[in-house]
Amino acid sequence: MTSRRPDRVFDEGLQHERTALAWDRTGLAMIVAGAFLFRAWRASIPLLFVVAGGLMMAAGGMVLAVAYIRYGRLHGVLHRGGEVTNPGLVRLVGTTTVAFSVVAILRVLIP
């Protein structure tokens, strides 16, 4: 009878899973931060802030979706061996956060 267990551990220390969870937490944090801007809606406040808050929440949702897809895809890469870094994704999340911070500062500066 052959064992159904894999012949070697492909991800010692569960780095892959921990990284996927870190992406999930970041996506959730983006949704929460976006909600802070989104819920601050008042008739006197420019629509820009509501839209920016909504976009940030959508971006957080996209991070969750990408994290899910990437988690599955990287299983194959880890088995075969290959590049796991994705500078494009890192750039996108960094830039989105900076753009959000600019809008947040405007929100406080505009009475």
């Binding site: 937490r25 931060a33 956060t97």
Partner: peptide, 21 residues
């Protein structure tokens, strides 16, 4: 590990932004 550290910094930034808002 480097990617998770980046994400931890981003979450720190997001927490500060949510706090400020």
């Amino acid at each position: 590990a480097n990617e998770r550290t980046f994400l931890a910094w981003i979450r720190t930034a997001l927490a500060l932004l949510a706090g400020g808002l």
